[in-house]
């Protein structure tokens, strides 16, 4: 699955699973940019069918609801939804 890389200050491996149509995803993406943290993101809704299923299973592993945005830091810390304070603190 191809992710887009956004360069910035490294605070571990930061991955954002998002939808291109979703308002809270857009806010989360903008927040990561504002913080200036190095991260990767993928718009799951724009993936071809086989990759989409793979991505969904990946999201569900971190967040059983399979909802968006799902932010994963270092494969461990998972933040679901646009939780501004939580995201800022985790990436401090």
């Amino acid at each position: 699955m191809k992710m887009e890389h956004v360069p910035g200050t490294r605070k571990g491996t930061v991955v954002l699973y998002a939808l291109s149509t979703c308002g809270w995803c857009a806010k989360t993406k903008a927040l990561l940019k504002e913080i200036g943290v190095d991260h990767s993101f993928v718009y799951v809704d724009l993936l071809p069918e086989d990759e989409l299923e793979e991505a969904l299973q990946e999201v569900e592993r971190f967040n059983p609801h399979g909802s968006f945005p799902t932010l994963v830091i270092d494969n461990r810390k998972v933040i679901v939804g646009f939780r501004e304070q939580e995201i800022r603190e985790a990436l401090r």
């Binding site: 939808l19 308002g23 809270w24 995803c25 809704d45 968006f68």
Partner: peptide, 27 residues
């Protein structure tokens, strides 16, 4: 601005799927 962005998402989904699937969920 926030709402227009969601309306755009609804229109995208309408075009994509033929119905206005929720823009914040994967259809």
């Amino acid at each position: 601005a926030f709402t227009r962005n969601l309306v755009r998402g609804l229109l995208v989904n309408e075009q994509r799927y033929g119905y206005m699937a929720c823009p914040c969920r994967i259809a």
